[in-house]
């Protein structure tokens, strides 16, 4: 997902840059009669508007199809759900167990004993694969199926005080 977000951002930012550069380059010679220019520009703007609606409207809806909130999130896995209770403290994580089996859904029940924390799961390449907030007084249920065995890091994703950056632990994911 991150590479897609990065590439898409670069493409869109570049398109915006082209628009501004095109106009800057074509700004020097004045066309006194603004009215015909306005009419053409408004027509183009209408097309641009509908183009945006046609491209980003479906994208906006499509990306709502796979929300991380529901129980279907870990549907790719099979077998019994492995439940881990995760509680954040300033500045450590307390997990009810620190190893799970790959390919089998895991349900993290994340909460906090003190302030806001963020429960971020990082793979062996240090890429964030899933997260939820750890809130005092609330339990956020994060469902994830680890496809690859290995050691995953849990990092805190919400600023929680002076040792926020040290609030890490690990989860071992065993092969099936």
């Amino acid at each position: 997902m991150q590479p897609i977000a990065w590439q898409l951002s670069l493409v869109l930012m570049t398109l915006v840059a082209f628009g501004f550069a095109f106009v800057a380059i074509n700004s020097g010679r004045r066309q006194d009669d603004y009215a015909p220019l306005q009419i053409r520009a408004y027509r183009l703007r209408t097309r641009l508007f509908w183009g945006l609606v046609l491209v980003f409207g479906p994208a906006m809806i499509y990306t709502l199809m796979d929300l991380p909130y529901g129980a279907t999130r870990a549907r790719t896995g099979s077998g019994a759900v492995q439940v881990i209770d995760a509680t954040g403290y300033q500045w450590r994580w307390e997990l009810s167990q620190d190893h799970v089996t790959a390919g089998q859904p895991v349900e993290f029940r994340v909460t906090s004993a003190d302030v806001n924390h963020g429960f971020g799961i990082y793979d062996a390449n240090l890429h964030l694969v899933a997260q939820t907030q750890g809130m005092p007084g609330y339990t956020n249920t994060l469902r994830h199926t680890f496809e690859e065995p290995g050691t995953y890091k849990i990092l805190c994703m919400e600023y929680c005080g002076v040792a926020h950056h040290n609030m890490m632990t690990e989860i071992r994911v065993d092969a099936r």
């Binding site: 997902m1 991150q2 977000a5 906006m60 991380p68 963020g118 964030l128 899933a130 997260q131 994703m157």
Partner: peptide, 14 residues
């Protein structure tokens, strides 16, 4: 793009 829920899932607070 960050406000897209599925993107935010792996990019929030990065």
């Amino acid at each position: 793009i960050d406000g897209t829920i599925t993107v935010n899932y792996v990019m929030h607070n990065t």
